[in-house]
Computed example of a mutant assay.
Amino acid sequence: MTAALTEPRPALAPPPPSSGSKRRRQRAFDEPPRWQIYVPLGIYLLFVLVPFYWMLLFALREPGSDSLVPWPMTGEHFAKVWNERGFDTYFLNSMYVGIASMLMTLFVALTGGYALARFKFKLRMPFMLALLCSQFIPGALMLVPLFEIFRELQMLNSLWSVIIAETVFQLPLSIILISGFIRNVPPSLEEAAWVDGCSRLRAFLAVVLPLLRPGLIAVGSFAFVHSWNHFLFALMFLNSQDKQTIPVGLNTLLGSDSVDLGALAAGGVVAAVPVVIIFAFIQRWLITGFSAGAVKG
Rank of each mutant, 00 (worst) to 15 (best):
I182T: 01
F279Y: 15
T167H: 03
V39E: 04
L68D: 10
P40Y: 09
F121I: 01
N184V: 06
A59L: 01
R27V: 15
S65R: 08
L153A: 11
L56H: 05
L60T: 08
M102F: 11
F279C: 12
M128L: 05
F136T: 05
F47E: 04
A165F: 08
A100W: 09
G255V: 02
A115E: 09
G220M: 08
T105C: 14
G267I: 00
A165R: 00
W228L: 04
R213C: 05
F147H: 07
T245P: 03
I277N: 10
A100Q: 05
F136A: 11
P10Q: 15
R183C: 03
V270W: 02
L211T: 13
R85N: 10
D257K: 00
I175M: 12
L232S: 07
A271W: 01
R85L: 09
G197V: 14
A3M: 09
A234N: 11
L131P: 08
P16M: 06
S179P: 14
S19D: 12
V195F: 02
N184E: 15
F290D: 11
G249D: 10
M73A: 14
A11F: 08
A28Y: 05
F47Q: 07
P40K: 00
I137D: 06
G113I: 04
A223N: 06
I246L: 03
P40R: 11
R85G: 00
P70D: 10
